[in-house]
Computed example of a mutant assay.
Amino acid sequence: MGSNSPYIQSSRAIRCLLLTSILALSSTLAASPLVPEDIAYKPGSTAAPNENTSAGVIVGSAELPTPDTPTTAQVNARPAARQNQCTDQRREHNHLGKSLVITRFTNSNPQTANAGNLFAAESGMAELIRNDLAQANPMLAPNLIPLGFALPDLSETQRKQQAQKIARQARAQFVLSGTIHDMALTDANTTYNPGIYRRLANGFHDLTGIQKFDPRTRLFSLELELRDGFTGEPLLTRHYTTSGIWNTRKPIGFDSPAFAKTPYGKQIRKLGKTISQELVQTLDCQPYIATIEAYPGQTQVILQGGANNGLQAGATMQLYQLVVVGSNTEYQVSETRLVKRPTQLHLSEVYPSHSTAVIEDGSYLNGQYLAVID
């Protein structure tokens, strides 16, 4: 049999591959083991995710629904369905720049961020979504603030009030908040305290890039809430879950260049783009609303919105009044409503950040009003 036969060439290739694998695994075998306590969190009864979740994003419940019971994903997907109905109606107004403020996310289980030193996930994930939103809709200029929100111990009334307060201070139409629920490793030992066989297997997965059957899975669970800044009402509530392979033992931090190169970091970035696309669809379905500053005895008003938002002189806007209604059953609890008035505003002068408008019928405004392009 000749020296150049396919059989001999194949054998040589196999030997080269084995030699390369041994050299690549030498550094892994020399690494000192870490006990799970050093990297903090070891899940007690966390079940391994479905095999397909490491390569994709799960929105809502992962359980199969019964014919009579809607899943969490179906319930939370209603705003997206509504967007399909209003796309044609508001397509011409999508060029208007609606204001959005994103709060610093909270973490209900901060100990799950210990592995890899991912304690900046609360601000890093909010920053990631803000950047993706700006790319998905250039007219949308999200503002990120260091204030946290969406704590689990807040009641619905408190959430509404806090959303209104944040929106009023930031002069924003919408408020986006989020809570990270889980960043746990399904089996910390496979990454931080592996045996001889597991070290060899980890080196094989890292060398070949094959993720199938790799048990070093890390979870990521995020709940987002988008609220109207004027009424505090929720517009979109979604629960996102994804997972990826966590194959590093270094404290690389969240959303660093090293983090972005890990399979887990790639899934987080993919999740951010999915979230931004759904948020843009929901925001496009909402009308453009600007706050009005009116003065007694004057028919000319000032709008907190201008050329930077896409407004033009000569445009017509509908007048709505903000009405606060107290509760008949709860103490110091009120509800904010938008009441449409049979009056329009005509933009006379438009500046970058604000505009002046004239009331159509020449009447005076008494109370708090909004200008709306529906």
Rank of each mutant, 00 (worst) to 15 (best):
D284A: 02
L283I: 15
I289R: 06
A307D: 07
E278Y: 12
L322T: 15
N309Y: 01
P287L: 09
A307I: 02
G265E: 02
M317H: 00
Q318R: 13
R269W: 05
R269I: 02
L303Q: 02
I268H: 09
N309I: 02
N308D: 15
L271I: 08
K273M: 08
D284N: 11
Q277I: 03
Y288F: 13
A313S: 10
F254K: 03
K273E: 14
I275T: 05
L311D: 08
V280M: 03
I268E: 11
A307T: 06
T316M: 09
D255A: 05
N309A: 04
T299Q: 15
S256Q: 06
I275D: 13
D255I: 00
V323H: 10
A290Y: 00
G314S: 08
Y295H: 14
F259G: 02
T274P: 01
Q312S: 08
K261A: 09
G297F: 05
G272R: 07
A315Y: 10
A315V: 00
Q277K: 13
A260R: 14
Q300W: 00
E278F: 15
I275F: 13
T282L: 09
T282W: 09
R269E: 13
I268V: 15
F259T: 01
D255P: 00
M317R: 00
I275Y: 13
T262P: 09
K261N: 07
S276I: 14
Q300L: 01
V280A: 08
A294F: 00
G310H: 12
L279Q: 01
Y264F: 15
P257V: 11
Q286P: 03
A294Y: 01
Q298A: 06
T274S: 07
C285N: 03
D255E: 06
I302P: 05
T274M: 07
D284R: 05
P296N: 07
A315D: 14
A294K: 04
A260Q: 14
G272I: 04
N308S: 07
L279S: 05
Q281I: 04
Q298P: 00
G314F: 06
T299P: 04
L279N: 03
Q300T: 03
Y320Q: 10
A294H: 04
M317L: 12
N308C: 05
A313I: 09
F254L: 10
T299V: 15
F254G: 06
G306F: 03
F259K: 04
L311T: 04
K273Y: 06
Q277E: 14
T299K: 12
D255N: 05
I302D: 13
T274V: 14
P257Q: 08
Y295F: 15
T282V: 15
Y288W: 15
V301R: 13
G297W: 06
G305M: 04
E293V: 15
A294S: 14
Q318L: 12
Q318D: 09
P263F: 11
L303I: 08
A294E: 07
A290V: 12
L303S: 04
G310K: 06
S256L: 07
Q318H: 12
I268K: 05
L319I: 02
Q286C: 08
L303P: 05
A315C: 03
G310F: 14
V280H: 01
P287N: 09
T299S: 11
I275R: 08
G314M: 13
T291G: 10
P296R: 10
A260E: 10
